[in-house]
Design a protein around this nucleic acid. Sequence first.
DNA 1: CGAACCTTGGACAACGTTGTCATACTCTCC
DNA 2: GGAGAGTATGACAACGTTGTCCAAGGTTCG
Lengths: 346, 346
Amino acid sequence: MTSERNEPPARAGRRPTMVDVARLAGVSLKTVSRVVNGEPHVQRAMADRVLAAVAELGFQRNHMASALRAGRASATIGLVIEELTNPFYSTIAHVTAEMARDRDTLLLSASSEEDPVREEQLLRDLCSRRVDGLLVVPAGCDHSFLNSQVEMGIPVVFLDRPGTNIEADAVLLDNRGGARSGVRRLVADGHRRIGVLLDSVDVHTMRERLAGAQDALADAGIGYDGALVRGGVRDPATAATAVADMLTQPDPPTAFLALNNRITVGAVQELWRRGSDAGLVGFDDFELSHLMPRPLTVIGYDTRELARRATQLLFARIDGDRSRPRTVVLPTELLERGLTPARTPR
Amino acid sequence: MTSERNEPPARAGRRPTMVDVARLAGVSLKTVSRVVNGEPHVQRAMADRVLAAVAELGFQRNHMASALRAGRASATIGLVIEELTNPFYSTIAHVTAEMARDRDTLLLSASSEEDPVREEQLLRDLCSRRVDGLLVVPAGCDHSFLNSQVEMGIPVVFLDRPGTNIEADAVLLDNRGGARSGVRRLVADGHRRIGVLLDSVDVHTMRERLAGAQDALADAGIGYDGALVRGGVRDPATAATAVADMLTQPDPPTAFLALNNRITVGAVQELWRRGSDAGLVGFDDFELSHLMPRPLTVIGYDTRELARRATQLLFARIDGDRSRPRTVVLPTELLERGLTPARTPR
DNA sequence: CGAACCTTGGACAACGTTGTCATACTCTCC
DNA sequence: GGAGAGTATGACAACGTTGTCCAAGGTTCG
């Protein structure tokens, strides 16, 4: 196209900058900036020349430089979750990314792997990249270091669990109520000895769910039996072991409450393997739950709504909402699908 | 702590910069930079003063400014997939994020939703943020616009499907061989009429898998019957419909090959619902496949390895590997789990 | 015909950081 | 004791962009 030029091609693998475009088009730097950003007050002919140069050089604005200069937002939000592989978290990531896209914002996501140290590192790293806001499913037990970040303009919204030592928005589930209604159902089916399988009481949601289960037992006048609560169940395999172990004890449980979906899967597997007819209610629905070898009753909730509300809240903050931090609690729902083969239905 | 100071606090919600730190510590800007970056040649006492000032102000280096000035990498890689909710993709995202973390690199991930236009937008956006590299599960049919990016230093690695009109690394699965072995199995079990359910032939993987199925049929001397191939199956619901429809045709299939996991789920569901004993082999393993109402034979592969290889390749490129683009094909494996209730086993 | 305006374009500084270079000082060794 | 090497610190420019301001030229209107 442009056959003659007196300056050297100038692009030794280097990326073209606005200066290069300006030189090629024979206009000033600022004019290029105006054209690239669609600002008014540039003559058509001049704009065309600039655009031609942009096209020829393959120029692309450097987002970092732009954001730096303009003191503008980085059009990025940070998401810190436990691990992306879990459908619960990937759904959150997906919903958030989708909503972010409508604002030309991208998602910088990272997994804490439930490690508080790592969580803090990640959060600090995200802040140093000047994300516009943070969405966090907290693993750590102290988020006070985020206070200054919030003050300096990086809002934080917690998801699924509240943050600690920080006043910030949170969108949570009614874990306690959910577990309570699950156990209530088992009790109504005649179960009196209900094994509870949970990950760790260090996790807020687990504590809440356990408390809900105990609420229901207390409601039914059933005393607490420590032997029926099994913690440290991290994955399907340990869940299966725990179930097997509890069933072979004297006076075994006749039903189980699995406090998350990984545990539920392990429990189903083990009960199925041994042909046991013990009752089972699981917290968290999961995609194929209705196709399990035995239909399952689960305590479900709307993960997408959880993410949606949190993201909305975050964007409101990013847009300058300075009202007091809010905590939103979303309901759970008992999805009865056959299950809990009532031992002694009465 | 520091009780007196003559300059104003200076932080009207503004973030402290190195200049602020330098002023407070009474040293030069460059000295702060040295301390913050752990460069040598700073006296202990001076470094301590700087660190104290950093702590007091809550200073945090601006990653964007730093990367800009140093012309350095942004310590970010871009991942474009179809949709994060699918376990296949979330596993990829997870593995990649994990490997990136070892290099203090974060993952900027985005879903193309199989929309080529959107894919291109996302890729351009990622490039304008100067990611260090791109990992792409391509949806589009022309990636020539990435050529200049590669030339200018943003390497691209394609995952699961090759890019089009671009010479770049790719890590793929042996889709054709996998489908072939799946159908071979069904044929060995005595099936002659095998229904094939696929998404769209516009997708590279689907074409390959279909071709593999046809290979196996040809090997067995079974003629091609267009009525047995059903495209446009996008999700479990349409898969169920397709199965139902095909089973009620005259001379129905006695077995099905589902060309991805969403389709497999729908097919299982429908076969189960009707109590059909038709054979079934699904492409893609999925977590609970062994817990399905009827055990399933699936064509599996190592998704983590796929992601691992691709990420390795990408980092090698980022580190300056200028060798010819490579294409890696990973094997699939037929995971026989009961299934394909041999109609006429012989 | 000149004042007042609008349009268009450019020069320059600034965003927050780091690389380059210069300076002042200390130490070593012949 | 002076050359040479090394250490500690700072001044300044630069990364690629955008905001501010000014100037040149054109148009309108009294």
